[in-house]
């Protein structure tokens, strides 16, 4: 499908913010003083993300009905949980500003912020994971990958603010390993989803090969049906994957090592955070852009106007 910018922003930034809240609450629990700036950043990210999601609304005035569907709609729930999370985060920030250093009460708020951050992240992931038609997303992998991405990014972003923290660094490396595992499985899952589009059950015709006939009449309605988009060329997909691995894993690992050697943690941690965030955005872009929807069975990429795309077969 098409990757909508507002959704890139909300999902990545909300995840980062939630991950930060988790990291910060760990610090709080461990009795470390937390900087209001870090909470400020977390809040800013959440606000930008939330704000971006508003721009995804095309019929603004109808936004007031957003919560009507909370009983069934993960999107409605996402609005509620993200909203709640932002509120609690703001309160936490207020506490940290009012009482810098470890203060009574902050622990409670920080804990709630982390829990809500995780919860909101989970709800957001569920928006995507709960759609059977989006074949590539309909899996717990969507949830765990999205959540580990957020947590990993959040940890990485927090680190420059709290200076050296071996335990947090180690924790983030563990999350990174988890992410790597999940992401690998997810990559496979996407491949299977792409190849598993079921032409036979989509048409009632059993004999292969299946082919969509006549490009002149089957110009895919990419413009009005955003659940599909031209199939991503394999090269682009692999380049994107390589970039993700580079920014999320290879470079951060290298930087971590470098930080260890150079003993200049703060700057390097900043670069490392930027690297992971960059990688997260590319990853999320690929998540949307490369997702295979069940309706692809009826929309092949055709026509010389779209050079380099897969043929009419699927």
């Amino acid at each position: 499908m098409k990757a909508p910018a507002p959704l890139l922003l909300i999902t990545v930034l909300q995840g980062l913010s939630g991950g930060m809240a988790v990291a910060l609450s760990i610090e709080v629990i461990r009795g470390k003083p937390v900087s209001p700036i870090a909470y400020g950043v977390a809040l800013a990210l959440a606000l930008i993300g939330g704000g971006a999601s508003f721009t995804h609304m095309h019929h603004f005035s109808a936004g007031r009905y957003m919560l009507r569907g909370w009983r069934t709609s993960w999107l409605s729930r996402e609005a509620i949980t993200t909203g709640l999370y932002i509120a609690v985060l703001a309160a936490t920030l207020w506490w940290t500003v009012r009482a810098p250093g470890v203060a009574v009460g902050i622990g409670w708020w920080a804990g709630w912020a982390a829990a809500l951050g995780l919860f909101a992240m989970w709800v957001t992931a569920m928006v995507y994971a709960s759609i059977p038609a989006m074949r590539s997303w309909h899996s717990p992998l969507t949830v765990v990958t999205m959540m580990t991405t957020g947590i990993l990014g959040g940890f990485m972003v927090v680190l420059p603010f709290i200076g050296e923290s071996a335990s947090l660094t180690i924790a983030s490396l563990v999350v990174m390993a988890l992410w790597l595992g999940f992401r690998g499985l997810q990559f496979r899952f996407f491949v299977d989803a792409r190849q598993g589009v079921n032409a036979a059950t989509a048409t009632g015709l059993s004999r292969a090969p299946h082919r969509l006939q006549d490009s002149g009449t089957t110009k895919p309605p990419y413009r009005s049906q955003t659940q599909i988009a031209p199939d991503l060329p394999a090269l682009t997909r692999h380049l994107a994957m390589a970039a993700i691995l580079w920014w999320v894993v290879v470079l951060p690992l290298g930087l971590t090592l470098l930080a260890h050697v150079l003993k200049a943690p703060i700057t390097i941690a900043g670069i490392r955070a930027a690297s992971v965030v960059t990688g997260s955005f590319i990853d999320r872009w690929l998540f949307f852009r490369d997702a295979t929807h069940s309706s692809r069975a009826w929309f092949a990429d055709l026509g010389p106007s779209k050079p380099g795309l897969a043929g009419a077969k699927f």
Partner: peptide
């Protein structure tokens, strides 16, 4: 919108024997 360009349709058996590919 239902038809605005027209490819040349060919049997793949014939096409492949001439090294012609889809698209």
């Amino acid at each position: 919108q239902l038809l605005s360009e027209n490819p040349i349709f060919m049997n793949p058996l014939a096409a492949k024997s001439l090294g012609l590919t889809d698209g």
